[in-house]
Nucleic acid binder design. Structure first.
Lengths: 229, 229
DNA sequence: TGGCAAGTGTCAGTGGCTGTCATTAGCCTC
DNA sequence: GAGGCTAATGACAGCCACTGACACTTGCCA
């Protein structure tokens, strides 16, 4: 078998078998997200999902290692985009700027890719479930931790540091990750769920990473609009 | 002093029933940690733990909501100590200093409390399992996230900020949490597992939180160790 | 001492997940 | 285009985490 999960080069025609698999996978994802969004994670059994996609439960587990995994299908897509964007940043750029630009620049592409799979509004509903379901939240954080680990590795590599010897890359990435999570949370709980709103949130929050570590906040002017370090 | 689990006034003496419960809970914890440390988390069934503690499986679940929970019994102890230490920091102290001092000052007390329950060496072995078992790692991160949420709340309160309106407390705490996790990881993988070594690690890592967010690391003299890959 | 409630064991059942095996269905060769 | 190969699937049995229900034991206290 040449390409396993994600499409790489579509030059050799997929073939019927491959297309069928893709269709089954998509059906499972869509069925799962729809069910989870409406009935909740715990309220949705794997049998439900399999039945909705018209396959056996056993087949579901041949496509996804766990019920969790299918819930994070969209998130995984986004992560892949961000990682790639980071890898393509020009050398010499400051670490925080690299992360910031990578996220902001890949944002539109991410949403496009997601929309091609499921309605963005559905993803939002699922995301709210993730945040409010302990088991999913835990998995989400573990995924985030893995992503941060890789980001720290990349940052350290760019800066010529040893990621295991110097704590600064990890700390920087941890702070960055905290910002992302704050933004995500606001997006999912806020009223405006548009893509533009999320971009706006991201930008605003990212602008605070630097100043947040400065001390004596109280002597600052406005809490949100602080300029320069 | 003698109440280990739930810290309330122990003035009215425990009573036989209560003491029996305490003994059962401790037996379960000890059996669980011992088994998990030796056979791994997935390699240990709840029936094993219950049998080792000489109770039924059903009784295990009356003491712990899940198999996970018993694995984090010690961690929960530590978290409670840190939170209390933070609450007792004098007002006016800078946020980062509050967190730093809270951790370092409560460190000895934590280890004393842990040692009263299980050998510290056993806890270390369990901690290594937590870090290397995906399911446990996820739970660990979720717990850490909850702790950070509370810490951010406390920091915001101290500084007179709105934790939902101002991202800085969360970002600061996220960076701090990142440091703690780096230190934990080094402690559990390093050679020196002593309490003093962990304190040393914590101190060193915490000293880097501030500088880590400064840019152009390359022009800095390196705070830890300059390595070339 | 007898009644009460807390603590426990047993049993049955649900749901996530896996191994096994027989069957179906693309694919490829001749 | 028939037949063999193998990937994909379904059906079934089984393990384990976890839960509800009910009966039984036991500390507690009037």
């Amino acid at each position: 078998m040449e390409t396993v999960g994600t499409a790489v080069d579509a030059l050799p025609r997929p073939g019927l078998r491959e297309r069928k698999k893709q269709r089954t996978r998509n059906a499972l994802v869509r069925a799962a997200l729809e069910l989870i969004a409406t009935r909740g994670y715990e309220g949705t059994t794997v049998d439900d999902i399999a039945a909705a996609a018209d396959v056996s439960q056993r087949t579901f587990f041949r496509y996804f290692a766990s019920k969790e995994e299918v819930a994070f299908f969209v998130s995984r897509l986004a992560e892949a985009h961000v990682l790639e964007a980071v890898r393509e940043r020009p050398p010499g750029e400051a670490p925080l700027e690299v992360l910031r630009r990578a996220v902001l620049d890949s944002w539109d592409g991410i949403n496009e890719a997601v929309e091609r799979l499921v309605p963005l509004e559905l993803h939002l509903r699922v995301y709210r479930m993730i945040e409010s379901t302990p088991a999913l939240l835990a998995a989400h954080l573990r995924r985030a931790a893995e992503l941060e680990k890789e980001l720290a590795r990349l940052v350290a590599e760019r800066e010529g540091l040893d990621v295991d010897g110097d704590p600064r890359p990890r700390i920087l990435v941890a702070a960055f990750g905290g910002v992302i999570r704050v933004a995500e949370r606001r997006w999912s709980t806020g009223g405006d769920v548009s893509v533009a709103a999320m971009r706006e949130l991201l930008t605003t929050c990212l602008d605070h990473v630097g100043p947040a570590l400065a001390e004596n906040w109280r002597t600052n002017g406005s809490p949100v609009r602080r300029t320069e370090t």
